[in-house]
Amino acid sequence: MASKRHLIEVDETTATRLRERADAQGISVAEVVAGLTALADTPVEISPEELAALDRQVAAIRSGEEATYPHDEVERWLATWGTPDYKPFPRSR
């Protein structure tokens, strides 16, 4: 049974990013949207240990601890997600 198609309007920036992600993965924009929708519906499970680690990291950020990273550096790294330029974030400075 064929799926019924729907037209969904998005702004130019979103459309461009969806096309770029689809091209990078070799799939259609519809498949990208379906994957993102499925991901959004997936509950995130986090262990007490992971939650405690996040709490420690937030406390370090709020205190201005030296081990934190500037926003623009993190923003540049996040922009590489889903692209061939993606690399894991460095663990130390």
Rank of each mutant, 00 (worst) to 15 (best):
T80K: 04
Y69K: 07
R56I: 00
L18C: 07
T83F: 03
D85F: 06
W77Y: 05
D23M: 10
R93D: 02
R76W: 03
P43Y: 10
E45A: 15
G35T: 05
L18T: 02
G64I: 00
R17D: 07
A60V: 02
S63R: 09
Y86P: 00
A60D: 09
A67C: 07
S63E: 12
I46H: 08
A38I: 09
S28Y: 10
D41G: 15
Y69W: 15
A79P: 02
L39D: 14
A30N: 10
P43Q: 12
R93C: 02
S92V: 04
E9C: 07
V33A: 13
I8V: 14
L18W: 01
T83K: 03
A15D: 15
V44Q: 13
V33T: 09
T13N: 09
I61S: 06
I46A: 15
G35A: 11
E9M: 08
D11Y: 03
Q25G: 08
T42I: 08
T14P: 01
V33F: 08
A34P: 05
A22V: 07
R19S: 12
G64Y: 00
A22S: 09
R19T: 11
Y69N: 12
S63K: 05
P88V: 01
E20K: 05
A30K: 02
S63N: 10
E65H: 06
Y69C: 11
W81A: 12
R19E: 14
R21V: 03
L51F: 11
Q25P: 04
P43E: 14
I8M: 08
E65N: 06
E65F: 01
L39W: 12
A59N: 09
P70W: 02
H71Y: 14
D23P: 05
P90F: 00
L18N: 02
P70Y: 01
V74T: 06
E31W: 11
T16F: 08
R62N: 13
A53W: 10
R19N: 08
T68C: 04
I8Q: 05
A38S: 14
T16C: 08
R21D: 06
P43W: 09
Y69G: 03
Q25E: 15
P88R: 00
E45P: 03
E9W: 11
E75L: 04
L51S: 14
S3D: 14
V33G: 04
A2E: 12
G35W: 01
S63G: 09
A59E: 14
T80C: 06
E20V: 03
A53K: 13
D11S: 07
A60E: 09
I46C: 12
G35H: 04
T37S: 15
E73C: 04
L78D: 07
V10A: 07
D55C: 06
M1K: 10
S3Y: 05
D23Q: 15
T80Q: 08
V10S: 03
D11K: 05
L78H: 05
E12H: 11
E49I: 11
T37H: 15
H71T: 12
T14E: 10
T83C: 05
L54H: 11
I27W: 11
A60W: 00
H6G: 03
A2Q: 12
T83Y: 05
E12A: 15
G82D: 01
R21I: 04
Q25W: 07
S28F: 08
A30M: 06
E75C: 03
A34V: 12
I27M: 11
R62M: 12
T68P: 00
D72M: 06
T68V: 07
T42V: 13
P88W: 02
P90W: 00
Q57T: 09
L36G: 09
Y86C: 06
A22N: 06
D72L: 07
T13V: 14
